[in-house]
Amino acid sequence: MTGEEIIAKVKASLPDAIQDTALPQGDAVIFVAPDCLQKVAAFLKDDPSLKFDYLSDVSGVDYLIEEREPRFEAVYLLYSIDHSHCIRIRVGIEEENPSVPTLSELWKGALYPEQELFDMFGFHIEGHPKMERLIMPKDWVGHPLRKDYPLTTEAVTFSYNRDFKSELVKSKPPTR
């Protein structure tokens, strides 16, 4: 199916659950609220003409700088192996208490990327069996891929060539 056909089919079947649709460069994209996500995903997986049986990836985006409402977004990429078509589900997530239901009951492959969403963005994944850090150390503070988490550099503590520490002190602007 082409992107338009997929969108038309999903819209006709679940008119209440789909907030919006888009067709950037021909890819089917649907916008879904967090509380409808599991229902939409189960429909996409089970419907015989859609049959999205393969979850390719889950990613998160923080739209803080764009000042979008809601601030966060989780993006799910689905394929159908038999029909060889794809769809993207974009789920807007509120800044206060960011939480989204898990899709790991439908696709086991979602377990790892959802855990990464918790680690990198601080989303609470409802129903996920393991809500703990995945990539960052267990005692890490903050969620690195949020836009308000600054990209910092680490001061080099020791070098054979140059005294970086004193250079850093020297290069600081004078305080008034």
Binding site: S56, D57, I65, L111, P113
Partner: peptide, 19 residues
């Protein structure tokens, strides 16, 4: 780029591998 996300095949394969 505002956001760059890599879909890494090895990352996605690790839970299946442990299975």
């Amino acid at each position: 780029p505002y956001r760059v996300k890599l879909r890494a095949p090895s990352f996605m394969a690790i839970p299946g591998m442990c299975q």
